[in-house]
Simulated assay, not measured.
Amino acid sequence: MAYAGYLVRAIPNERATGEFISAYMNTKYVKSKLFNMAKNIVGMANINAEEFKKIDVYIPPIELQNEYTKFIKQVDKLKFEMQQRMKELEDNFNSLMQRGFKGDLFN
């Protein structure tokens, strides 16, 4: 296995959860800031570790971050359940369509 040596890793600590930092780093605001800081090398935007360290991160109280994480997990669970139900509905619909085209719906 090989990976690029220029990868930068953000490690959460007791002041910030990984879920919060990930969500924060993926906001339009931070992405725009990163894009403006990046240097375009060989058609690829890059930012080094020193520049990455200069990014200001708004850190709310850990209780709010934990509440956010709990909420996101709950939303993800509901999203997964809904996707499963949608698949079941699609399968049932397709089954009815096949039976209908075969003439098996009515006696």
Results as ranks from 00 to 15, higher is better:
V42K: 14
S32K: 09
I59D: 00
T69S: 14
G5K: 11
E50G: 10
K73T: 01
F106S: 09
F101D: 04
Q83R: 13
A38D: 01
N40V: 15
E81R: 15
P61I: 05
L105E: 00
D104M: 06
R99G: 00
M97D: 05
L89G: 05
K79D: 10
G18I: 00
Y68D: 01
N26L: 02
D91T: 07
P12Q: 09
D76Q: 14
R99Q: 13
N48E: 10
R99Y: 04
A16S: 08
L7V: 14
V30Q: 04
F80Q: 14
A38W: 00
R99S: 08
N26G: 06
A16I: 03
I55W: 02
K77V: 07
I55C: 07
N26R: 08
T27Q: 07
N46T: 14
A10I: 10
Q74W: 07
G100P: 03
K39V: 11
E63C: 04
T17M: 00
N40A: 10
N107S: 11
E81N: 13
R85C: 08
K70Q: 10
G103P: 05
N94K: 11
Q84D: 12
N66V: 08
A4E: 10
E63H: 08
D56G: 08
E90D: 09
S95W: 04
Y58G: 08
K79G: 01
Q65L: 03
D104Y: 02
V30F: 04
S95H: 10
V42D: 12
A45P: 13
G100S: 10
F71A: 13
E51K: 14
N36L: 10
I59K: 02
F71L: 15
K70C: 03
E67S: 11
R15A: 03
R99C: 00
F106E: 03
S32H: 07
M44Y: 05
M37T: 03
N36H: 14
A23I: 02
N36W: 05
R99N: 05
E90L: 07
I47A: 07
Y3R: 10
A4V: 12
I21D: 01
I62D: 03
K73H: 12
I72D: 02
K102N: 09
K79R: 13
Y24K: 00
R9S: 09
K33R: 13
F93A: 10
K33G: 00
S22H: 12
F20W: 14
Q65M: 04
I72T: 01
Y58S: 13
G100F: 07
D76Y: 06
K28S: 12
D104W: 05
I11N: 06
Y24P: 01
A23Q: 10
F52S: 11
R99K: 15
E51C: 06
F93V: 12
K31N: 12
G100I: 07
I59N: 01
L89V: 10
K54Y: 02
I21A: 01
T69R: 08
L7H: 05
D104R: 02
N66T: 06
K102W: 01
F80K: 15
G100N: 07
K39I: 09
K77Q: 14
P12S: 08
P61E: 10
A2F: 08
I55N: 03
N13L: 01
I59C: 04
A10P: 00
L34G: 02
L89S: 12
K53V: 02
M82W: 07
E51Y: 09
K77C: 06
A38S: 15
E19R: 11
N94T: 02
E51V: 01
E19G: 07
K31W: 02
L7G: 01
A45T: 06
Y29H: 08
F20R: 05
